[in-house]
């Protein structure tokens, strides 16, 4: 952003909002007069454009501690979560489009919100060790999306989606679309009692099962080996 351009503009925009993978990123062109910044943010919020539960990020070092707290309170009034941009996740999340968040809201509103409040207290790096438990069958059109790992006690039906930052364990049959390590974790794996997904994704690799997949009585595990997704039977 060139300052010269800003100067010539009728009204100088102090705060820029940009869509990123997990939410919106705020950048500040000038925070010398923080009252003005605050006023601008307030006017943007009152426009009602932001969806509740959206994550608003800022770059570390952009704000003083006091200003950060001030903004956090303002955003919280509108149900928005204000926090530091997670560097690691931004770099390694090529798969998820920003508009995916909308679909998630549709299905698992409650869980998403619960998790959103949890995330406030949990460091980003810890997310992967967390586990989301889904105690039901996911039917066509339903979607689970989380940064953590997922345990599904039930089936994942055709047309359903599970997208996890970590690994996915399905205590049932898997016919839907499953994506483990969705934010780049190539160590992630997928286990199901019957692994017959429409599509299987781990990190940035995509595979679909062969059309004449052999039936096995054993549980199966998909993981990345030598740069390829492989499925093998396992005991459990």
């Amino acid at each position: 952003m060139k300052t010269r351009l800003n100067d010539t503009a009728q009204e100088v925009e102090l705060v820029k909002i940009k869509g990123v993978k997990q939410g919106l990123l705020l950048t500040f062109s000038d925070i010398s007069d923080f009252n003005k910044v605050e006023a601008e943010i307030n006017s943007k919020l009152t426009s009602g454009f932001f969806m509740r539960g959206t994550h608003i990020f800022f770059k570390p070092g952009d704000l003083s501690h006091a200003n950060e707290e001030l903004l956090r309170k303002i955003f919280a009034r509108y149900g928005l979560i204000f926090k530091v941009m997670p560097e690691v996740i931004e770099k390694t999340a090529p798969e998820i489009k920003a508009d995916d968040t909308v679909e998630t809201e549709y299905e698992d509103n409650k869980e998403e919100q619960e998790r959103a409040t949890q995330e406030e207290t949990v460091k980003e790096s810890d997310d992967i060790t967390q586990m989301l438990v889904v105690n039901r069958t996911l039917r066509g059109g339903q979607e689970i999306k989380t940064k953590s790992s997922v345990l599904v006690c039930g089936n994942v039906n055709p047309g359903a989606q599970v997208i996890a930052g970590g690994s996915i364990d399905i205590r049932g049959k898997c016919y839907g679309m499953v994506h483990a390590g969705a934010y780049g974790n190539t160590e992630a794996f997928i286990i199901a009692d019957k692994l017959h997904p429409t599509q299987i994704r781990i990190a940035n690799l995509v595979a679909r099962p062969p059309d004449d997949m052999e039936e096995t009585e054993m549980a199966e595990r998909a993981s990345i080996k030598d740069g390829q997704i492989v499925i093998e039977p396992i005991d459990r």
């Binding site: 039901r136 039917r139 066509g140 059109g141 339903q142 039906n157 055709p158 047309g159």
Partner: peptide, 12 residues
């Protein structure tokens, strides 16, 4: 069957 599955989800 797919549509029935979706409907069962919606009923849930």
């Amino acid at each position: 069957v797919r549509d029935a599955d979706k409907i069962i989800g919606e009923l849930g």
